[in-house]
Amino acid sequence: MEVTTKSMPYEAWKDNEYIESLVKELQENGANVVVGSFDKLINWGRSNSIWPLTFATSCCGIEFVSLGAARYDMARFGWEVARSSPRQADFIMVAGTIVHRMAPVLRRLYDQLAEPKYVIACGACAVSGGPFKKSYHVVMGVDKIIPVDVYLPGCPPRPEAMIYAIMQLSRKIKVEKFFGGVNRQEKQEEFLKNHPIEGVED
């Protein structure tokens, strides 16, 4: 089984190891026909309708605006329904530096997202702290606070790279299973258990 995307050659996904390991896991566990086709339907819906949360802290956010503009037009993929309320969004594009003061806020936003929820760490700052590695107030990568699905390097990443990242997220969603198995929810719960935040209800 290959996780394909419309009008994208499979070779364009240069680094497929991660997704392929997921596919392998999916096939090993197996599923009956009914559940399998339900999974397919659900994943089709989920992977084709990824609504971002309007969230930007710095430069990357402006590139995200450009991504919505006429030249790159993320509306083609159906991602343009940016919701301002985290309850209605599907993923956070952590676009920009996250600092100590912002960290609990980001975590709270993540907790407010409704399941299924995804995170893209967008830009060097969100991935690892980037050029502010030596700062006293910058969180060295958002994966210290919330589980990240896709890492997107660049400072800031070009809009094309953002499209690629969201497409990778879409592919990841395509190999999900509603019950058990390749369920990212378990990994997520494990992460949250290891990174507790007081005062925020999980």
């Binding site: 659900i42 089709w44 819906g45 084709n48 083609r76 993929f77 159906g78 329904v81 599907d90």
Partner: peptide, 19 residues
Amino acid sequence: GPNRVGPMGLLQSFADMFK
């Protein structure tokens, strides 16, 4: 505008509803 899900993006809102 939507043009990737289904012909001319016609299935876009169906996908949204499913989700």
